[in-house]
């Protein structure tokens, strides 16, 4: 064990100061120190995409960054994005379309979807799949996720919210 060193950063809009071991990854810092367990660790080597968070607004792997290296930076996790309603329509579309099963990959998927949906023009299904290329999902087979993201593109282009499909969701098939 090495001496803990101070680090301060903004996490989901909150200024936080902590002492951490230098070897602590941002992913472990968020999950253990901040108790933000929405960010998941699926491989701890930057492959699965479950641990994606926003670093100064851009998705990065929280398992591939040291917490100490985030000094002064702004981090947003799925919890922050959910609470600020920044991804409310994406969450709704995922829910309507059942674009998640076990939900373990979902925080990373939502972070990527949030980034994809910043595109000024709607992406094609192929382009959406390309942008999702670093997010592993074992349950869905991806199609529902692509559908949900498409649905948000359509809604945003029309300037409307994604409405809850309520008790009777439309199936895509």
């Amino acid at each position: 064990m090495t001496e803990r060193v101070p680090v301060s950063m903004t996490v989901n809009g909150e200024d936080v100061q902590r002492f951490v071991e230098p070897r602590t990854t941002l992913g472990d810092f968020l999950r253990v120190e901040m108790e933000l367990t929405g960010t998941h660790l699926g491989c701890e080597m930057g492959v699965c995409g479950a641990c994606l968070v926003l670093l100064n607004g851009k998705p990065i792997h929280s398992c591939l960054m040291l917490a100490v290296a985030a000094e002064g930076e702004t981090i947003e996790t799925v919890e922050g994005l959910a609470e600020s309603k920044a991804i409310a329509d994406i969450q709704q579309a995922f829910h309507n379309r059942n674009a998640l099963q076990c939900g373990f990959c979902t925080p990373g998927m939502l972070v990527t979807a949030h980034e994809i949906l910043k595109s000024e023009h709607p992406l094609t299904r192929e382009e959406i799949r390309d942008e999702l290329s670093g997010n592993y999902c074992r349950c869905t087979g991806y199609e529902a996720i692509v559908d949900a993201i498409e649905q948000v593109f359509v809604a945003r282009a029309a300037g409307r919210e994604v409405e809850a499909s309520g008790q009777f969701a439309e199936t895509a098939a």
């Binding site: 930057g46 998705p59 591939l64 960054m65 942008e131 670093g134």
Partner: peptide, 9 residues
């Protein structure tokens, strides 16, 4: 080069 999130960092 890798995937979008890797390219961001």
């Amino acid at each position: 080069v890798a995937h979008p999130a890797i390219r961001n960092k």
